[in-house]
Design a protein around this nucleic acid. Sequence first.
DNA 1: TTGTACGCGTTATCAA
DNA 2: TTGATAACGCGTACAA
Lengths: 348, 348
Amino acid sequence: MAGKKNTPNTSGRTTVQLIAQKLGVSAMTVSRALNGKPNVDPKTRDRVLAAARKSGYTPNHIARSLALRRTETIGVVVPEISHSFFPEVIRGIEDAAYSAGYHIVLTHSAEDDCRERDAINTLKSKRVDGILISTAQSVTDISTYRDAIRQGVPFVFFDRVVQGVGATCVSIDDGDCCARITEHLIGHGYRAIAHLSGPTTVSIGKGRLNGYKEALNRHGLKLRPELIVESGFHEKGGYSAMEELLRLPARERPDAVVAVNDPAAFGAMKALQEHKLRIPQDMAIVGMSDDVRAELAICPLTTMRQPAFEIGKTAASALIAEIEGRDKPGRKLIVETELTVRKSCGCV
Amino acid sequence: MAGKKNTPNTSGRTTVQLIAQKLGVSAMTVSRALNGKPNVDPKTRDRVLAAARKSGYTPNHIARSLALRRTETIGVVVPEISHSFFPEVIRGIEDAAYSAGYHIVLTHSAEDDCRERDAINTLKSKRVDGILISTAQSVTDISTYRDAIRQGVPFVFFDRVVQGVGATCVSIDDGDCCARITEHLIGHGYRAIAHLSGPTTVSIGKGRLNGYKEALNRHGLKLRPELIVESGFHEKGGYSAMEELLRLPARERPDAVVAVNDPAAFGAMKALQEHKLRIPQDMAIVGMSDDVRAELAICPLTTMRQPAFEIGKTAASALIAEIEGRDKPGRKLIVETELTVRKSCGCV
DNA sequence: TTGTACGCGTTATCAA
DNA sequence: TTGATAACGCGTACAA
């Protein structure tokens, strides 16, 4: 009962201090026992563990994080949640994180650059050990990324990546992916191939457009600018873009369409249906990403399967490796895609 | 340069202390200015804010949380992430949380009770201000919930709820929901109606089964135990369950099936297809939850629309209200469902 | 093996 | 309006 500088502990929760007092040992001994350090008398350890269990002790990760300057948490920023792709990615991230003992703080930019900046700052404030991000569509200013990276926050981009800021990027090879599916169409005799493109400000949009051009080029097909229509990444945009294509004189219309992703393809298919055009007879169409709905679509959609789970897992593993100093930043990781042929391309 | 007990601050990051030193004021003043407290000289405030911006100061939420014993974070536990329902719920949660200034730590039980217990303990360790959970299928022991609730952790169940432990539950009225869709079939002349049930250990499974029974009962239809087959919540189980029904002698087969949810219905539809049976002519089928794929299924699926986004939003708002003391725990919140008639029931 | 002293970065409290 | 002090709960470093 000496006049020690002992913590009052107003909150009702059990702490190492309390356990220590009850057992007549120091807090450090309790801490060591709880963390399985070797230098603790087995008997003492047992007493501590028993007391901890009995009192329903839950270690305070916040205090631990503050002391260790490490939260064992990674922040995730996704531009949308509903689309089937991101949930799968998140599952992959969760999987890798869980095995490595990390937790996930999930934030959502809703495709808005302000919200994205908010999210990043929030995550920095929460002192996450690293950030995993797929950029919002509206982002033009990459200084937020630059700042974070310069401040030493491990940063890994996935899917929608930003190269040249020194962060590791995990994605499919958009160019190759789009080129391959375009060549699939060319190989089956299509000649007037249109492209519903994403915004070219986003790496995906640009990369895929390039792949499309590349494929035409390789096979000596002329690039017809009127056959490239920006649709964005969503169903609605795909619908409008197809409407635009259908306004072309009948003989100038494409015989096949490469959509930047599956949702855009769905929108386009809807427009075709409304115009009583048959898929693939009147117009073939292919997508990209293998949305869960692709198989079930009115006309099952030919698409490039994008291993979402694996992207998430790869990205999280890469980030964690960098956090733990086992790998260097600035790598470029490519995840393989696979052509999934269904009916919409008319090749089966 | 007096021999003060000043923090060395080995890490390179800016802190309130550092700003305070640079400006020759106390840390408290900086803190107050940064948090917009009223009792700060406007001039001082401006100097502080300027210095903060210039030095790229990011508040340390960890330290703040430790001091305030409040993390402004809510923990979320979902049993799966891929299924389209949960991503939508999460979006709803995120929406409500974001507006209220809370963040989300996402965990995933993978339908496993051990992982779920882990997740809850993790969240308690991280001192989240409250927990939002949809229980895993394999859970039989509810003491983990009990303990957490008794320890004063605000707890709200959504979708797969546990009543009687004093926590608020947010869900649809499973009984009513299933009864209504069953009655829809009865009203259109079906008489031998089967039910692919979920595990009855889960509230949803039990509630829906009861609703099904109730509907038959209300209309004087005899309950035929052989027409109730447990399918679980997934496609695979739905497939097997339908296989089982199809082993019944032809004249004892059901003319319609109420599946516990859409994925189970998809599995059942696949089995019907493989047996060359037509939907709905040979057998009608309805689901529940309005999976994104329902509309696109080979035979568009009649189902009860479950407002996933709203469930998430309602649950998060309820939890936050309880965290902030604006509402009491133990409430029961029902979110309305809506019958969505498509082709699979043969009623259009 | 165990204990002491102190820092992690912030805020509440009370005094000036 | 401002500042000094202590506390939030835990871990590192060093001493015993």
